[in-house]
Structures are given as structure tokens and as C-alpha cells.
């Protein structure tokens, strides 16, 4: 019996020691665009109202062309409630990339980097398959698809026309000037989500200046 109590106590002690060690250190992951440089080193920065801690020993790995995931080692004393982390990449000839994203470093343990989030599963759509008029519904759906396809392609063309020539030049200049450039030139052919996000940031910056 005594032996069992001893074993349980030991197990509880080891468990809390492990949890303590895990909570006292960890890593914060930051996505950085290389901006065309060939990185050989990554520097992580932990920024808080109390100052900036530079971490020269950050690891990095390529996640896709021009995009790297920098993993910054963090000790318990490094982060406070208001600490955010960012990083930049350095090339052999000393060129630096732009700063990467800014992430909340205050809860290091359990934090998942954006790239670690799972892809959403495609939901099975609710369709009128039980309907006895399924064949006429199919015809309607096909017409709807055609109409929407034409509408989307028209909007794409409209965007291409609006975002060209001097307007495109101005937008690129604003991105560059305000440090919003992400390494991929602005163009109407980009993923519309990326376009929406970049144009919104441009608008926010010029409106508040």
C-alpha cells in the first residue's frame, strides 16, 4: 500500500515538473516573406512595452516559395502579457527581409502557427436531391452556375481594367512607401483574398495618414 502511495506521489511530482518545464520555455512561430533574398540566418524579436529582446538563434524553414516559418525560442522570463513577436531574415551579404507577421507571444504554450491550422473540410452541400423534380432542378442549377460564372469572369475583367496602368503603379508605390510590400508585386491576377487584404491595408494607411 505504502509503495503504491509512494509511486502515485512520484508520478504526480514528475507530472508537475514536466508541466512546469514545458510552461517555462517554448517557441513562437512567425511567418516571414524573404522578399527575394536567400536567407542564411533568422533573427527573432520579442517586443513589449518594456523593451525589445533579440533572439539571434531562431530556426527557420521554407514553407513555400519566398515564405519562411521562423521559430523563435522563448523562455518564461522573455514574455509578458503585452509581448508580441516578429522576425526577419538575413542573407549572406547582410541584406535583410522585411519584418514578418506580428504574433502574440504572451501565450507561448499551445499556440499554433497559422500554417499548422488544418485545412477546412468541404461541407457536403444541401441540395434538393430528394425532390422528385430533380432533373428540372439540375437544369436550374446548371443555368445558375453559368450565370454566376459569367458574373465572376466579368468582375475579374472589370478589376483588371480598373487596376492597371498608372493606378497599379500608384498602388505599388504606396505599398512600398508604407512598408506594406510582401515580396509579391500587386496585380489583379492575385488570389482575390490576398488582393482584398492588401487593398484594405493600403486604404487603411492612406485614410489615417
Amino acid at each position: 500500500m505504502n509503495r503504491l502511495v509512494y509511486k502515485i506521489t512520484l508520478l504526480v511530482f514528475v507530472f508537475f515538473m514536466t508541466v512546469g518545464a514545458y510552461a517555462s520555455s517554448g517557441r513562437v512561430e512567425v511567418v516571414v516573406s524573404s522578399g527575394g533574398i536567400k536567407p542564411i540566418k533568422a533573427i527573432g524579436l520579442l517586443i513589449s512595452s518594456g523593451g525589445v529582446i533579440s533572439k539571434g538563434n531562431a530556426e527557420f524553414r521554407k514553407v513555400k516559395d519566398g515564405v519562411f516559418l521562423v521559430s523563435i525560442p522563448v523562455q518564461k522570463g522573455d514574455v509578458g502579457k503585452d509581448t508580441v513577436a516578429t522576425a526577419l531574415l538575413l542573407s549572406e551579404d547582410g541584406k535583410a527581409s522585411s519584418f514578418g507577421e506580428v504574433v502574440d507571444a504572451s501565450s507561448v504554450t499551445g499556440r499554433m502557427a497559422r500554417f499548422a491550422l488544418p485545412q477546412c473540410k468541404t461541407r457536403k452541400p444541401k441540395s434538393a436531391v430528394e425532390d422528385e423534380n430533380i432533373y428540372s432542378n439540375l437544369g436550374n442549377l446548371e443555368s445558375l452556375l453559368e450565370i454566376r460564372k459569367v458574373r465572376r469572369d466579368f468582375l475579374k475583367l472589370q478589376l483588371k481594367k480598373a487596376m492597371s496602368g498608372s493606378m497599379l503603379k500608384k498602388l505599388r508605390k504606396i505599398e512600398e512607401g508604407f512598408g506594406l510590400y510582401t515580396g509579391r508585386p500587386l496585380s489583379p491576377d492575385l488570389d482575390p483574398y490576398e488582393l482584398s487584404e492588401r487593398l484594405f491595408r493600403i486604404y487603411s494607411v492612406i485614410r489615417t495618414k
Binding site: 452541400p125 441540395s127 436531391v129 439540375l138 442549377l141 445558375l144 454566376r148 458574373r151
Partner: peptide
Amino acid sequence: SEELTRVTQRL
């Protein structure tokens, strides 16, 4: 029918 519904929603 399901595929058409999915694509029209995405569009």
C-alpha cells in the same frame, strides 16, 4: 446535383 450546388455556392 451536389457538385453543382457546391460550385454555385463557391462562385
